[in-house]
Design a protein around this nucleic acid. Sequence first.
DNA 1: TTGAGACTATACCGGTCGGTATACTGCAAT
DNA 2: ATTGCAGTATACCGACCGGTATAGTCTCAA
Lengths: 204, 204
Amino acid sequence: MTLTLPEKILQAASELFYSQGIRATGVDAIVKAANTTKMSLYKYFPSKDDLVLAFLRKRDEDFRVWFAGQVDAKADTPKTKLLAIFDVIGEWMAIPEFRGCAFINAAAEFPLEGNPVHQVSAEFYEHFRSYIADLAGQYGSKSPETLALQLSLLIEGAIVSEQMKRHSGAAGQAKQAAIILIEGSSSHIPDISLPTNDSRRSDE
Amino acid sequence: MTLTLPEKILQAASELFYSQGIRATGVDAIVKAANTTKMSLYKYFPSKDDLVLAFLRKRDEDFRVWFAGQVDAKADTPKTKLLAIFDVIGEWMAIPEFRGCAFINAAAEFPLEGNPVHQVSAEFYEHFRSYIADLAGQYGSKSPETLALQLSLLIEGAIVSEQMKRHSGAAGQAKQAAIILIEGSSSHIPDISLPTNDSRRSDE
DNA sequence: TTGAGACTATACCGGTCGGTATACTGCAAT
DNA sequence: ATTGCAGTATACCGACCGGTATAGTCTCAA
């Protein structure tokens, strides 16, 4: 409770925007949740749009710092970090407050490309992808950008899938697919003389 | 222009809902676009919610029929159909009116799981996934449900990614990843010296 | 000719939207 | 003691929201 007033307002707004949607959240509801008045809100945020952008920009910053921290805490090599990403995503999805990705949702609510809200959302995923590409590069992927894009597709897909239907195990499936893609992207020579467990020739 | 009035209303509403978002579209705008009056609209659709559900249900039906038709027109074996899915998605994304997936967007606008709009959206992806699982089964995948879920993650991810930033080549990347997953899911014994019926080895 | 149903026209409802005006309280620095 | 600023309280604005009431126009069939 040592938050400044603008921080308190932004926090209340963020929770409402994320849990109910941006358009579905009125300024009055934010004011009530933050236990303040419209006058104060409009002092620090000249318009609701400004508040929305502040929400997304802070979320961008916070989420990426938190995420990288979680990954670092779970793994210490590029390859294991790439895989740990999916574990972190899986844990994030498990919390009851999970309502999907704030940026995907925001982009869906403001579908025009030129809209600032849409643009900030797009930037988040650019940053996220370059984070993955960085790890992929350290790992020694043949094509870090390709691998990063493909992994991010799996991640975004898993988030959306879990948002649609909870507890569908999307993160786990995404991880299994990621393992295959990561292995396939390795510049190491693939060892083909491994256990092709017996000749169980199944039919066409 | 041989549409009945309720069809005309539904069509106008659908275009607005998809292009601008559901919450962002007022009843007055729909009425104006359909060139009719509120009284007529409320005769056929007792509430805006009913209209929204009608929009989603028709889209569900139409899209899946259209999609399967497109895939069938492009390929005639299970494996090539699985790959053709990504080509169809890619072509769909290329049209200028593309604003992502109506169901993902709707689920983002109505985030509560219990909401009928959310539920109809979730059902769409269940149907879509079982369509893929069916193809995967015909193909002879070791685990059709697993492959179907993984491919659907790639597809959903590609749609979201393209929605965020147009012309990012997401569908192509998704297809490349899908090829690897499909090959890996084959119950056939991988034999590098044997030409498979239709595909050359596309990756190292 | 009449009347029923489809559709239009328009005014209206209470409520909420984002945003503003005005006046007030409490407190800290001068 | 006074000023100035952070924040409160509340009433208000025009616009729009989803939805309704009432009355009028058109066509077509009995």
